[in-house]
């Protein structure tokens, strides 16, 4: 008995030597899987959305521009004479649920959307991807009732897009994203379009410095009717972050800034030089304090 006690005392005395306190501490640390943050710099990749949501109480003002195509030549100053604008606001109701509103001059479209982060990527052995569900409704004010050429109903002006955004941050620099998308338009010209259509998007960003990242995005449209004059949207961009601002400079064949417009009505043929310069500028305001 005495020997056992002496042994215990000896063990206690030697482990108390303290040299490896830090190593011992690491063993105490709960090795829980942490959520991965900042997969992208902002909520927009090029034209479309990322898995990112605004933090609770954050209000983001988004000001986006798409100029005319470079192929329009010197007369249009390579597209700079024409521009479509979208002004938008997005608010974080919780860290995972966001709501947004916007107005795009292209087709005079009002849009409203919700996004919800369903799954959050974790480090280590945890959840491998982040998944955000995104749903947007758009209302085209163009054309005017009297200019439509037929008895246009207000329901004809509506369209809906649902997306699942699936992203994985492979390293602090590289994030890739997949975007299965579904579009429903209430009214279409059946010669060139269907009411329901699907597309699959691929995209990613590569951070080159801690404030600058390169981005790209491409959507492949499935089962497009043969008379359809539109193209698959593609875009490349540079994200530049300075404090509360993110500047995204982009080159894309799409000029629409809402999901319906760029997914199903991209006019430009990228390989024929129908590439437009554009930018998204965001400014984030914290309206309510965290915690």
């Amino acid at each position: 008995m005495r020997n056992k006690l002496a042994l215990c005392w000896l063990i206690a005395a030697t482990t108390a030597s303290g040299q490896d306190l830090l190593a011992e501490l690491e063993k105490q640390a709960p090795s829980e899987n942490e959520y991965v943050s900042a997969s992208f710099k902002g909520t927009r990749l090029v034209n479309g959305q990322t898995i990112e949501t605004k933090g609770k109480g954050e209000l983001e003002f988004i000001f986006a521009h798409r100029f005319g195509p470079l192929s329009s030549g010197a007369y249009e100053l390579y597209g700079l004479d024409q521009a479509y604008v979208r002004l938008g606001l997005e608010y974080g109701i919780t860290d995972r649920l966001g709501v947004g509103l916007g107005r795009n001059s292209e087709d005079k479209t009002m849009d409203a959307y919700l996004r919800y982060k369903l799954l959050r990527q974790q480090s280590g052995q945890g959840m491998p991807v982040s998944v955000t569900a995104f749903g947007i409704a758009g209302y085209k004010f163009s054309p005017r009732d009297e200019d439509a050429g037929y008895d246009i109903q207000s329901t004809d002006r509506l369209s809906y897009v649902g997306q699942l955004l699936i992203a994985r941050k492979f390293s602090p620099a590289l994030t890739l994203q997949l975007m299965p998308s579904f579009v429903h338009k209430n009214a279409v010209d059946p010669a060139i379009e269907k009411n329901n259509s699907a597309a699959l998007g691929f995209g990613g960003r590569l951070k080159v410095t801690r404030s600058v990242a390169l981005t790209t995005e491409y959507y492949y449209r499935f089962d497009v009717p043969s008379g359809n004059p539109y193209h698959n949207p593609v875009g490349f961009g540079i994200d530049i972050e300075t404090g509360g601002h993110v500047f995204q400079l982009v080159m894309t064949n799409s000029r629409g800034l809402t999901e319906r417009a760029f997914l199903t009505e991209t006019n430009g043929d990228f390989f024929a030089g129908d590439i437009s310069f554009g930018f998204n500028v965001t400014r984030t305001f914290q309206l309510s304090k965290q915690k």
Binding site: S37, G55, G57, E58, D95, Q286, K291
Partner: peptide, 10 residues
Amino acid sequence: TFEKSLMREH
């Protein structure tokens, strides 16, 4: 934890 969530991210 910070007052602004953007601060935490940066």
